[in-house]
Design a protein around this nucleic acid. Structure first.
Length: 892
DNA sequence: CACTCCCGCCAATTA
DNA sequence: TAATTGGCGGGAGTG
C-alpha cells in the first residue's frame, strides 16, 4: 500500500513512503491474496526505524482526520489497486470528507481490506522472515499502528499471535522485538509435543462425546496434576489452563493461539474445524458450553486464524460433514520440525549463522499475574536474543520458578537439552510418567521429523516435499530402527531392496538395519479408498461426529494417543501423511481396520534417564530414542468395525495415561511397547500408496507374504514390523482391514522369521532380547504396567524397550506392560479383536467411500494390485513414493 | 441466514 | 493515576 501511495502520494504523504519497502518478494506469501500483491512485499531487511520515527511524528502531528483519510486511502488503494486512484490524492484527502464520500465508497474500503489478515500481511511484510542475527529489529507498536493505519488494538491482535509463535517477543512497553522465523520450527515442535500431550487423543477422536470426556480429562489434569503438568509443556501456555486461575492471560489470545496451533500439529489430518477447536479451547467452561462463549471463542479463533493464514501456516478450507459444511482450517505449515540441525537447514534460507548460539536462546518467561508461569523457551538462536533483555515481566515474575536460566549460550542443541532437562526435572519431580511423556515426545518429535511427506520444515514455504529421503535425516540416529515416513516406509519396508536403497541413500545405516518402517497410522488408512483430497477434507475433518467417524477418530486416535503417551514418535510420521491423505480413505480404513500406525512408544523408565542426562542428554536422549524407536503398529485389526469397542475405552485410557502416566498400562490398548530397534530388520512390507489416479488403494504388503487373505503374514523382524494391508473392497468391506501382526520375536537376530499370520497386528519387538513377551489375545488383557521408570540407565538403553503402542482402535486393546525390570522388557499385551467377520457397520461404510472406491478404477484393482505389488514390491515402493509425492503436492 | 470478523468499549495490568 | 494491554461481544459486511 505504502508503496503505491508513495509513488503517487509521495508528494503528499511522505510518511507513507518510509514504511515499507517495496521489494516484494517474499517467498512467503505464496498463497495470499492476489489482490494486493503489493502487500506481499517483503523486505529483506528490517526497515530502519528512524524514518519511522519521523513518520510517527508527522502522523501524530497530522490531524486525526488526516490520518483517517490517509489510512482509508491507503487501505483502499492497495486493494483497488490501483491505480485509478491516481487521481488527485491530495485532493482527495481534502475532498474526501464530503463529496468524496462517494468516491470512498467506490473505493470502498471494504471490510476485507481492513481485515486482520491483510493487516497482518502488511505487518509481516515489514520484517524479514529470517533476520540476520545481528540485527535486532524492534517494533514499536505505535509506529506500526500509525504506519499501517490502524488502531493499536489491532496490532495487539497480531502481535499476540506472533508472540505465541515466538516470532516476536515483547521487550518493553511499546516495544516488541522481531525474531522472524528462525525459531519457528522449534516453536512448532514444542507445540507439537505439548499438543500431543494434551490433545493427542482428542485430535484423533474428535467426537463430541470425546470432547466431553476430553474436557473431563482436562479438568482432572488440572485439578490433580496441575503443577506437574505444567512442567511438561514447554510452553506454559498449555499449562496455563490448569495452572492459573485464569487471569486474563489465561484466556489470552496467545494461549489460544498456541493451543490452536497444537491442535493442528497433533491432528492427523491437519485440518481443524473451528467449532471443534472452539470446543476444545473452551476448556474451562467445559461444562458450560455457553453458546455465547462458544461464539466468542470462535471469533477469537478467526482472529488467530487470520494471522496464521498470513503467516502461511494454515489455510481455510471447508470440511463437509454429514451435517454440512463447516469452516475449518488446514495446516499448511511445516509438519515436522527438524531438530536443531534440521532447523538450520530449514532455515537455510536465511543465512543464519547460528551465532545465536551464544546469546542464544532466549528464554522467555511470561508469567501471568496469577502466577502461572508460562515460560516459553525458545530456542531461539540468533534472532531471539534480543529478547533477553526485558520481557515484560519476566524478571518480575515472582512466580515462575522456571525462570531458570536462560542460557544464552546454548546452541539450539543446548536449548533443547535444557528443555529436556527441565522437563525431566519437573517431570520427575512431578511425575515420572509425565516426564517420560515429554521426553518421549521430544524424542519422538525428533524422530518423526524424518517423515518424508512432510513439508520441509524450515522454510517459509511449505512445500511439500515428497521426498522422503530428505526427510529421513532422522535417520541420523544411529539407531537402526526408525520410523519411516510414509513414503519412505514403503520403500523401506520392502525387503526387497528398493526401499532399502532409498533408505540407504538417506541413511545407510538405517537401511540395513531398519527393521521396519513406521507408517503413520494415517497412511494405513490410506489404503482404502482413495478419495481425493478434496473428498478427504470432507471426511476427515469432521472428526468425530458420527459413530462412524468416531470410529475413525478412534482409530486415528490410538496412534495419537500412543504417541502422546508413548512417545510421540509416531505422530510425526503419521501426520504428514495425513494431510494429504484423504480422510475418506482413512475412514474407510478406519472402519475396517486400524491404521497401522507405528508408534514409537516411549519407554518408560528409560526415557527419563536419558533425559536426565544433561544437555548432551538431550541429544543423547534423542539417540536413544532413535534406537528405541518403536513402532507401534497398530494392530488394528479390523476392529474398526467394531465400534463395539468403545472408543471411550481408548479415550479413557488415553486420558488416564495422559493425565498421569503415560506409562500406565493402558488398559486398553494402546501401548504396546516395544523395543528397540537396534536390530536390523528388513522391511517386510510395502506400503503402496495409491496412485494419484487411483487414489483408492494402498496396500501394504508384507514382503513375504501375499496378502491374499485377510490376514497377512508378516515377517518377523527383530523389531517389529507392522504389516498391514488394507484392502478396501466392497467385498472386503466386511473386513477391510487386514493386519498382520508381525511380531517380533524377540530379538531375533535372525530376522525374519516368521511371521505370524495372525491377523493381527504387529508389534515390535524389543530390541533386546526379546525378553519381552508379547501377548496377543483377542480378549483384552490388562496387565499392570510397570512402573515407569524410575531409575534407569541413562545413557544406555541397553535394551531399549520400545513400546509400541500400537494403535489400537477400540477394537483392539493392547496393553503393554513394562517389565519392572525397567526398561527391560516390556510385555505387551494386545488384545485384538478379531477381525470380526462382521462387516463394518453400515454407517461406517459410507457410500462415499465406496464411491471413492469405485471411482477410481485403479483403486479397484486392489486385489490385483496387491498381487502385483507383491510381485514387484520394489517397484511399487518407488512408485508409491512418487505417488505420495505427487499426492502431497497435488493437494494444494 | 450463516459465516466472518471489524470495531472499539472498557477492564485488567503496567508503568 | 495514566497508559498500555487485551478480553469481549455487538453487530455489520459478505456471500
Amino acid at each position: 500500500e505504502n508503496i503505491f501511495e508513495q509513488s503517487r502520494m509521495a508528494p503528499k504523504t511522505p510518511i507513507k513512503n518510509e514504511p515499507i519497502d517495496l521489494s516484494k518478494q517474499k517467498g512467503c506469501t505464496p498463497e495470499r491474496n492476489p489482490i494486493t500483491p503489493v502487500k506481499i512485499i517483503d523486505r529483506p531487511q528490517p526497515d530502519p526505524w528512524t524514518p519511522t520515527a519521523n513518520l510517527k511524528i508527522l502522523v501524530s502531528a497530522a490531524s486525526p482526520d488526516m490520518r483517517d483519510r490517509e489510512k482509508k486511502k491507503e487501505l483502499f488503494r492497495p486493494i483497488e489497486n490501483s491505480e485509478q486512484s491516481d487521481t488527485p490524492d491530495s485532493l482527495q484527502y481534502d475532498i474526501v470528507d464530503d463529496s468524496t464520500v462517494d468516491e470512498f465508497e467506490k473505493q470502498r474500503p471494504s471490510r476485507k481490506q481492513k481485515s486482520l489478515g491483510l493487516l497482518c500481511q502488511k505487518f509481516l511484510a515489514r520484517y524479514p522472515n529470517y533476520p540476520l542475527s545481528t540485527e535486532k529489529t524492534t517494533i514499536s507498536l505505535d509506529e506500526v499502528a500509525s504506519i499501517l493505519g490502524v488502531e493499536r488494538r489491532r496490532i495487539y491482535d497480531i502481535v499476540n499471535v506472533l508472540e505465541s509463535l515466538h516470532l516476536v517477543s515483547r521487550v518493553a512497553k511499546n516495544q516488541y522485538c522481531w525474531h522472524g522465523r528462525h525459531n519457528l520450527s522449534q516453536t512448532l515442535k514444542m507445540l507439537q509435543e505439548a499438543g500431543e500431550l494434551q490433545y493427542g487423543e482428542l485430535m484423533t477422536s474428535q467426537h463430541k462425546e470425546q470432547d466431553l470426556e476430553y474436557k473431563f480429562e482436562k479438568r482432572k489434569k488440572e485439578a490433580i496434576p496441575d503443577s506437574q503438568d505444567r512442567p511438561l509443556l514447554d510452553f506454559s501456555e498449555l499449562d496455563c489452563s490448569s495452572a492459573s486461575a485464569n487471569s486474563r492471560k489465561d484466556k489470552s489470545l496467545r494461549i489460544m493461539s498456541q493451543k490452536f496451533v497444537m491442535l493442528f500439529l497433533v491432528s492427523k489430518t491437519k485440518i481443524v474445524t473451528l467449532d471443534i477447536a472452539a470446543k476444545i479451547l473452551i476448556e474451562e467452561t467445559q461444562d458450560t458450553v455457553d453458546h455465547s462463549k462458544f461464539k466468542t471463542k470462535v471469533r477469537r479463533l478467526y482472529d488467530i486464524a487470520n494471522v496464521l493464514t498470513s503467516l502461511g501456516l494454515i489455510k481455510k478450507v471447508h470440511v463437509t460433514e454429514e451435517r454440512g459444511r463447516k469452516p475449518a482450517f488446514k495446516w499448511i505449515g511445516p509438519v515436522e520440525f527438524p531438530e536443531k540441525t534440521d532447523e538450520l537447514r530449514g532455515h537455510s534460507p536465511t543465512p543464519d549463522p547460528l551465532p545465536g548460539t551464544q546469546r542464544g536462546a532466549c528464554v522467555q518467561y511470561e508469567t501471568s499475574a496469577t502466577g502461572k508461569q508460562r515460560f516459553t523457551r525458545h530456542a531461539s538462536f540468533n534472532s531471539a536474543q534480543p529478547c533477553e533483555a526485558t520481557r515484560r515481566k519476566v524478571s518480575s515474575e515472582p512466580n515462575s520458578p522456571h525462570q531458570e536460566k536462560q542460557d544464552e549460550n546454548c546452541s539450539k542443541m543446548i536449548n533443547l537439552a535444557a528443555v529436556c532437562r527441565q522437563k525431566i526435572e519437573e517431570d520427575t519431580g512431578n511425575k515420572a510418567g509425565d516426564t517420560e511423556m515429554i521426553l518421549n515426545s521430544t524424542k519422538s518429535s525428533n524422530i518423526t521429523l524424518p517423515l518424508s511427506l512432510l513439508p520441509v520444515p524450515g522454510d517459509s514455504d511449505f512445500c511439500v516435499n515428497p521426498l522422503p529421503q530428505e526427510v529421513f535425516p532422522m535417520a541420523q540416529t544411529d539407531v537402526p530402527s526408525f520410523s519411516l515416513p510414509v513414503g519412505i516406509s514403503s520403500q523401506a519396508s520392502h525387503p526387497s531392496t528398493p526401499a532399502a536403497s532409498k533408505t540407504e541413500n538417506g541413511k545407510p545405516t538405517l537401511v540395513p538395519n531398519q527393521p521396519f518402517l513406521c507408517f503413520p497410522s494415517s497412511s494405513l488408512f490410506m489404503l482404502c479408498g482413495g478419495l481425493q483430497e478434496n473428498n478427504l477434507s470432507e471426511l476427515l475433518p469432521t472428526a468425530g461426529d458420527l459413530g462412524n467417524r468416531s470410529a475413525e477418530a478412534q482409530a486415528a486416535v490410538p496412534p495419537t494417543a500412543c504417541q502422546k503417551r508413548s512417545s510421540h514418535k509416531c505422530s510425526s510420521p503419521s501426520a504428514p501423511v495425513d494431510d494429504e491423505e484423504p480422510a475418506a480413505k482413512r475412514q474407510t480404513l478406519e472402519h475396517s481396520f486400524l491404521p497401522l500406525s507405528l508408534v514409537v512408544p516411549k519407554q518408560p523408565s528409560e526415557s527419563p534417564k536419558e533425559e536426565s542426562s544433561p544437555g548432551s542428554g538431550c541429544s543423547a536422549a534423542v539417540h536413544l530414542e532413535m534406537n528405541r524407536f518403536d513402532l507401534a503398529s497398530p494392530a488394528a485389526p479390523e476392529a474398526a468395525n467394531k465400534e463395539s469397542v468403545k472408543p471411550l475405552d481408548c479415550q479413557e485410557q488415553e486420558k488416564q495415561s495422559q493425565n498421569k502416566d503415560p506409562d500406565e498400562p493402558p488398559p486398553g490398548n494402546e501401548h504396546i511397547s516395544k523395543e528397540n530397534a537396534n536390530q536390523p530388520f528388513q522391511p517386510q512390507y510395502l506400503y503402496v500408496q495409491p496412485t494419484a489416479g487411483l487414489s483408492s488403494f494402498n496396500l501394504l504388503f508384507s514382503a513375504n507374504q501375499a496378502p491374499g487373505a485377510i490376514s497377512l503374514a508378516a515377517n518377523q523382524m527383530p523389531s517389529l514390523s507392522v504389516p498391514c494391508v488394507m484392502v478396501p473392497s466392497a467385498a472386503l468391506a466386511s473386513f477391510p482391514l487386514i493386519c498382520s501382526p508381525s511380531f517380533t520375536s524377540p530379538l531375533a537376530p535372525a530376522p525374519d522369521g516368521s511371521f505370524s499370520a495372525a491377523a493381527l497386528t504387529n508389534f515390535s519387538v524389543s530390541s533386546l532380547a526379546s525378553t519381552t513377551p508379547v501377548f496377543i489375545s483377542t480378549t483384552a488383557v490388562v496387565t499392570p504396567k510397570v512402573s515407569p521408570a524410575p531409575s534407569v540407565e541413562p545413557q544406555q538403553p541397553p535394551h531399549p524397550a520400545l513400546h509400541l503402542s500400537p494403535v489400537l482402535t477400540r477394537s483392539c486393546s493392547a496393553v503393554k506392560l513394562d517389565s519392572p525390570v525397567c526398561m527391560g522388557h516390556p510385555v505387551t499385551l494386545l488384545k485384538l479383536q478379531q477381525p470380526s467377520s462382521a462387516p463394518l457397520t453400515p454407517k461406517s461404510i459410507r457410500p462415499a467411500h465406496h464411491e471413492a472406491f469405485f471411482k477410481t478404477p485403479g483403486s479397484l484393482e486392489d486385489p490385483v494390485a496387491w498381487k502385483k505389488h507383491e510381485g514387484n514390491q520394489t517397484r511399487n515402493g518407488s512408485s508409491v513414493q512418487r505417488r505420495l509425492e505427487i499426492s502431497s503436492t497435488s493437494p494444494d
